[in-house]
Design a protein around this nucleic acid. Sequence first.
DNA 1: CGAGCAACCTGCATGC
DNA 2: TGCATGCAGGTTGCTC
Length: 271
Amino acid sequence: MPELPEVEITRLGVTPLVKGQLIKDVLIRNKNLRWPISSGLKKNLLGQKFSAIERRGKYLLFYTDQGCMLIHLGMSGSLRIVDQMTISGKHDHLDIIFASKNALRLHDPRRFGAVLWTNTTPLQHKLLKNLGPEPLSEDFNGALLYQKSRKRRQPIKNFIMDNHNVVGVGNIYANESLFLAGINPKRQAGNISLQRDEVLASTIKQVLKRSIAQGGTTLRDFSNIEGKPGYFQQQLNVYARASQPCVKCSTPIKECRLGQRASFYCPVCQR
DNA sequence: CGAGCAACCTGCATGC
DNA sequence: TGCATGCAGGTTGCTC
């Protein structure tokens, strides 16, 4: 489900409803995620308040005065704010219940998500400390892309989806960004000129920003914290459009697999 | 070191 | 209708 825009939509939706609210109870209904939810989570959170909710890559960081809860939504995770009495479903793993009677509820059918606790600076956490730059920050630009990709032979699509190079570019947005930048996804990362890397970096920023502005992409089941879908999928140019005409030149869109992921491109517009 | 790939899971669409 | 297969928005950690 979530790529960076969807995680950001979730963060923006959750923040006003949970920030500063006293945590009254924590229910671990199903601890089975990528790693088991620690039973100590309740002790860590009880009586605390979230002072800020930040994002690093696709991780959500829920800060308290005592430490920080990290949540990753994996492929199918979502957060909702519900009334604490709302009946839970099969894949509802965790409820954090506030004095306001609202609950922050984590739903994750495929269980690729994670809920972790850290007492140290979260950005120094093992899973976060080696992440590449945020795509929407000034740290990420064409010069960086160019410098990091020299002598790299892997396809550019794999390269921009690697968190060490830049975070938050998942499969949909990698496909879309490369289309708009006119770059073939199979092209070796190390063979791309500085000028074209600059186009690519600014395209990635633009695509992510536009998607956030439209509430993210809903393909199957992404929804925001109120359960409403995003609208960016209406603007997808290549993703899941195999054999359909390119929006620019009408050539049928091609599909291939790169790094085990479905990849879509126009063989004429993308070189 | 880079690159490739299996694995972690469930749900859904498809085809026989 | 039932069963097998393949695929899905992500990431880690192994092997070569």
